[in-house]
């Protein structure tokens, strides 16, 4: 088992794939490259073949070229760009019974607000309150008068005709 020896892997998920010994490590281990991944491997898991290639401890691309010369094409795996998984959003069920409760809460809030307003109105001086009431009443009277005049106008036009 020397550097450049062509082998077949006979164990693991890469079994049946051809590879080259790139580096001899301590004990019964070697570094292999080729159709398999570039990795450390036990000699027991390799079956040596007759062929030998001139390959040093270079990059994976050099090994790919050497394999091409032999007539073995290595398919490169293209890793996909990582994308985030779409998050599942929970569907919120709207219960019919839940609605009145919400209404009650709002009612309570409304009543509380109304009570506060009342208390504020009491605090204000009675004269100011009277003035406030007088103004809208006068305005209302004016509006009513205008409406009556408008109602009369079309009636008068119809009479003329």
């Amino acid at each position: 088992m020397n550097v450049g020896r062509l082998c077949v892997k006979i164990a693991g998920r890469d079994a049946g794939k051809k590879c080259v010994i790139v580096e001899v490590l301590e004990g019964s281990f070697v570094t292999i490259d080729g159709e398999t991944r570039r990795r450390k491997c036990n000699i027991r898991h390799l079956e040596p073949l007759k062929e030998e290639i001139k390959v040093g401890k270079g990059s994976h691309e050099e090994v790919v070229k050497a394999f091409k010369d032999l007539g073995i094409e290595i398919k490169e795996k293209k890793s996909k760009p990582k994308t985030e998984k779409p998050k599942k959003q929970r569907k919120i069920k709207v219960k019919a019974a839940a609605e009145p409760k919400a209404v009650k809460k709002t009612e309570k809030k409304d009543t509380a607000k109304a009570a506060e307003k009342k208390s504020e109105a009491k605090k204000e001086t009675p004269k100011a309150a009277e003035k406030k009431e007088e103004k809208p009443a006068a305005e209302k009277n004016e509006v009513k008068a205008e409406k009556k005049a408008e109602a009369k106008k079309p009636a008068a036009k119809a009479a003329k005709k």
Partner: peptide
């Protein structure tokens, strides 16, 4: 596993 190794060696 033993028979797999034998088979791969035989085919290679």
């Amino acid at each position: 596993s033993k028979c797999t190794r034998k088979e791969i060696v035989r085919r290679s």
